[in-house]
Amino acid sequence: MNVYISVVSHGHSSLINQLSCLPELAKRYKVIVKSNKLGDSFCGLNNNSNFHWIDKSYGLGFGHNNNIVFNFCRSTLGMNQSDYFIVLNPDVFIESNEIDLLIKKMIESNSKLAAINLYKDYDGIIHDYSIRKFPSLMQFAKSFLGLGNSSLIDKSVISAPCKVDWAAGSFLGFVVSHYAALNGFDENYFMYCEDIDICYRSHLLGEKVTYFPQIRAVHLTKHANRKLFSKHFYWHVISAIRFLLSKFGLTQLNSSCN
């Protein structure tokens, strides 16, 4: 059983080098970085046989990039159905012992899709509210208008592993066979909501996300500009509409990782 870690870089190599997380992870696991634009340069990784860099096919969406990594792992690195595929943001710092614990807990609980406890600070005080309920049209609208988000789940009251609707794509752990059964991420989402979508499709297959609160990492998130009429706001609205349509069976989902 092997662990493959997929990281998509949108020119994030300076941050990756600064965090020094991936060189440590690559001592134990296969780490694959997919660059989505020119200009990346990595320190402490290029001479590591566990590190692989896909530096081509730029300007793709989050889900599409991760699907490329997944297919590369299967076709080139020999990833098996019983292995584990982890989607990791370049701005997440996690230690290898936390990855080990996650895999152990996933095996013990027979979980095929998992999320962990992300914080916004190294002291573990400020929660990153990365686990949520599936959103409704009204919840999307209120969130866009800055009127709060009732789909958020309060992590501070959770002390034991539990099932949740969806978790942010900043960290998601999959059994390889399950990611394949889901056909990976829907590449019709360019940015935003692709994590909601893949968790929803997993839910439809009877496999909800297992949230492990005792497994911790730091997410140094910086949200992109989502002001009205910005490109990020446009992408978010389009993705929200697509998810709501797919939720009610009004659009056909993409199949990209057979």
Rank of each mutant, 00 (worst) to 15 (best):
Y129C: 10
Y129I: 15
Y129K: 12
I131C: 12
K133H: 15
K133R: 14
K133M: 11
F134T: 04
P135Y: 15
P135V: 09
S136G: 07
S136V: 06
L137W: 14
L137A: 13
L137G: 08
L137N: 10
M138T: 06
A141I: 15
A141V: 15
K142S: 09
S143G: 06
F144S: 02
F144C: 03
L147R: 09
L147M: 10
N149M: 00
N149D: 15
N149S: 06
S150A: 09
S150F: 08
S151H: 07
L152W: 08
I153H: 02
D154N: 12
D154R: 07
D154M: 05
K155N: 07
V157A: 02
V157S: 03
I158T: 03
S159L: 09
P161K: 07
C162A: 10
K163N: 11
V164P: 01
V164F: 00
D165K: 03
D165E: 02
D165Y: 02
W166L: 08
W166G: 03
A167Q: 09
A168W: 07
A168N: 12
A168T: 09
G169S: 07
S170Y: 08
F171T: 00
F171M: 04
G173T: 06
G173R: 01
F174A: 00
F174R: 00
F174Y: 15
V175P: 01
Y179M: 12
Y179H: 05
A180C: 09
A180S: 12
A180K: 13
A181T: 09
L182R: 04
L182G: 01
L182I: 05
N183L: 01
N183H: 13
G184V: 08
F185E: 00
F185M: 01
F185K: 02
E187W: 03
Y189W: 13
F190N: 11
F190I: 12
M191H: 11
Y192M: 05
C193F: 15
C193N: 12
E194N: 08
D195I: 00
D195V: 00
D195N: 05
I196N: 04
I198M: 04
I198T: 04
C199Q: 04
C199D: 05
Y200K: 07
S202V: 06
S202G: 14
S202Q: 05
L204C: 15
L205T: 09
G206M: 03
E207P: 06
E207W: 06
E207C: 10
E207A: 09
E207F: 11
T210P: 07
Y211G: 08
Y211R: 00
Y211V: 11
Q214P: 02
Q214I: 03
I215W: 01
R216I: 15
A217H: 03
A217V: 05
V218D: 01
